[in-house]
Each structure stands twice: as structure tokens, then as C-alpha cells.
């Protein structure tokens, strides 16, 4: 009798325990679902939010950054800021900067990276010229003063890697027919994404902008081979006996020179 009673008590206790555990587990599962969904949405880093130098790829960065703000504190130019809850920006508490507000001045000793206790900013980055925060893209050729044939050149002049990351490419000015256009041209392999050019652009809205790699860059297909490079490598044409056909120019519209330096339109 007393044995039965005891067993019943244990059963009741076990039921209670299992019930409690199941309830808590369900509550946690609901919370976990919300967190996961929220997390997935928060991953969408806006294009104008640039991570500090050395930041791991975004997916890894979000698992490594403890949102402490030490990089922000050690940035001597107050470039970096922490994302605040509610602003449409990067994940809450993570560091970023907006180039048009305050660009990265590319300190030689990279104090933000040194300060990072977790390595979310990769400590193997020791030369700031190797940083890869994004790529500048001359995004609006219609309003860029250089494209209009003027000599603004500001983005080119402020570039810390002048003549490497931004070069001026001379093109004929087809509007006047006799002048040159100096096209500011970003060399993506050299550009660190510091944003000094975006900051310096004299237009009310910058014509050159730093964008994340994923938006700014294409990727060449792995199987593509550039014939001229292959030819140079091999020292001779790879397909022998290719006949060089004469250029076929339509008779009715012969090419007229549109550009005579210093002479104006013909």
C-alpha cells in the first residue's frame, strides 16, 4: 500500500519534472526561432556601411565580434562607430563607418585591428595598404566633373595610394573633339576601400563611392583564358595557321576622324 503510494508520488514528480522541462524547452525553442530569424535579417549589411580594416568576411565577423567598442576607442580619427539598436544599419553593437561622413585615414599602425580582443579584425593585417574594406567605384559618370572634361581630380589627389589605386586615364574629349578627358580610374586590386575619395568628392552627392566587394566586383570565369596573354606565355600563337582576314569597313560610312588634338572638330 505504502509502496504503491510512493511509486505514485515518484510518477507524479517525474510527470511534473518532464512537464516543466518540456514547457521550458518549448519556450526556448520559440525564442530561438525568433532569434534566428532576426539574426538572418540583421545580416544584411547596408552597402554604405563599411567594416573596419581587417574585418573578417561578414558571416564570420558576426560570430567573432563581441561588440565591445575597443576598435572605436582606439581609432584616432573617430571614424568608427558602433551600430545602435533601431538604426537601419549593421547588426547592433558592431563597428562600421560611413565614408562620406568620416573615411578611414589608413593609420600605418592600424590601432583598431591591434585593439580587437577577438580577432574579428584580423591581426594578420599588418600593412594597411593590404586592407580590403571595400572598393571605390566611380558610380556616376554623367555628373563626375572629370568626365565632363574638367580637371577636378580631387578623388585622385586625395587617394593615399595615388597612381596605384586611382589612376587618371587620358581619353579624347568627344564633346569638344580636341581636348582630353582625364578619367579617374579605380584599380580594384590596389584600392583599400578607405573612402577618402568618396569623402572628398566635391559634388553634393559623391560621384565615387566605396562599395562592398560583393557589389562592386565581378568575377572572371575560371576557365577563361585571355588569348594574348596565353600567346605571350607560349611565345607563339597557340593555334597555328590562323589567317588574318582584312578589316571590313562599310564603304558608305567611312570613318571620319572625330578627334584632332588642339584643332577642334573637323
Amino acid at each position: 500500500m505504502s509502496g504503491e503510494k510512493k511509486t505514485g508520488l515518484i510518477d507524479a514528480k517525474r510527470r511534473q519534472f518532464l512537464g516543466d522541462a518540456a514547457r521550458t524547452a518549448c519556450g526556448c525553442a520559440v525564442a530561438a526561432t525568433f532569434l534566428t530569424v532576426w539574426q538572418a535579417q540583421a545580416k544584411a549589411l547596408p552597402a554604405d556601411a563599411i567594416r573596419p580594416p581587417g574585418a573578417l568576411p561578414e558571416e564570420e565577423f558576426l560570430g567573432a565580434c563581441v561588440r565591445c567598442g575597443l576598435c572605436v576607442r582606439d581609432c584616432p580619427f573617430d571614424t568608427l562607430k558602433l551600430a545602435e539598436l533601431g538604426e537601419t544599419g549593421p547588426a547592433t553593437g558592431t563597428p562600421y563607418f560611413t565614408a562620406r561622413d568620416v573615411p578611414c585615414e589608413m593609420c600605418e599602425d592600424i590601432p583598431c585591428v591591434v585593439a580587437c580582443p577577438t580577432g574579428a579584425l584580423d591581426h594578420s593585417l599588418t600593412n594597411i595598404d593590404d586592407a580590403n574594406m571595400g572598393v571605390a567605384v566611380l558610380i556616376d559618370q554623367e555628373n563626375c566633373l572629370n568626365f565632363l572634361g574638367l580637371r577636378c581630380d580631387v578623388c585622385y589627389r586625395v587617394c593615399p595610394l595615388i597612381d596605384e589605386a586611382i589612376t587618371l586615364e587620358v581619353r579624347p574629349n568627344l564633346r569638344t573633339g580636341s581636348h582630353a578627358v582625364f578619367v579617374p580610374t579605380v584599380q580594384a586590386d590596389f584600392c583599400t576601400g578607405c573612402g577618402l575619395c568618396e569623402k572628398a568628392c566635391v559634388l553634393p552627392e559623391s560621384a565615387i563611392k566605396v562599395l562592398p566587394q560583393r557589389i562592386a566586383r565581378a568575377e572572371s570565369a575560371e576557365h577563361y583564358r585571355l588569348g594574348w596573354e596565353e600567346k605571350a606565355k607560349a611565345g607563339n600563337a597557340l593555334v597555328p595557321g590562323v589567317i588574318d582576314l582584312p578589316d571590313r569597313v562599310p564603304d558608305a560610312t567611312p570613318f571620319e576622324p572625330v578627334f584632332k588634338p588642339g584643332k577642334g572638330r573637323p
Partner: peptide, 17 residues
């Protein structure tokens, strides 16, 4: 739960809240 979500998403998801 927070650690499981961190492991599952590879991100400090709990730090969003």
C-alpha cells in the same frame, strides 16, 4: 538556447537582443 543559436547561425545572435 543562446549558445545553440550562436552555434547554429555562426553569429552572436543573442547580442541583437
Amino acid at each position: 538556447m543562446t549558445l545553440l543559436v550562436a552555434a547554429g547561425t555562426g553569429s552572436l545572435a543573442y547580442e541583437l537582443v
